Simulated scan of single mutants.
Amino acid sequence: MRRIGRRVRLGFMVNKSQRKRSYEKRKKSMLNMLNELSTQGGVEAGAILYNRFEEGPVVFPSVEDMEESIEERFEKLGTQLLNLKRVNREMEMGLVMYQILQGYQLNNSLNFIDLNDLGWVINTYLAEIDNKLG
Rank of each mutant, 00 (worst) to 15 (best):
E90I: 06
T39Q: 14
G46S: 13
Y23C: 01
L110I: 05
L115K: 15
L110V: 06
L115P: 01
D130G: 01
L95I: 10
N32L: 13
L101K: 11
R2D: 10
K25L: 10
L110T: 04
S29A: 15
I122A: 11
F53C: 00
L77A: 12
E67D: 13
Y50C: 04
R86I: 00
L37D: 05
N107A: 08
G41R: 06
M33Y: 09
R73V: 03
W120D: 14
P61T: 02
S69F: 11
N111V: 01
S22Y: 10
S69Q: 13
I70H: 09
G5M: 05
R26A: 12
I129G: 03
G56W: 03
L126D: 13
G11Q: 02
L37E: 11
S22M: 12
M30P: 00
L126C: 06
L126R: 09
F12S: 09
L101W: 08
T124E: 13
R26L: 07
L31E: 05
N83D: 14
F74P: 00
G5T: 09
K27S: 03
V121G: 00
Y23A: 04
L37G: 07
R52V: 04
P61H: 01
L77F: 11
G134R: 12
N88W: 04
N111P: 04
F74N: 14
E64L: 08
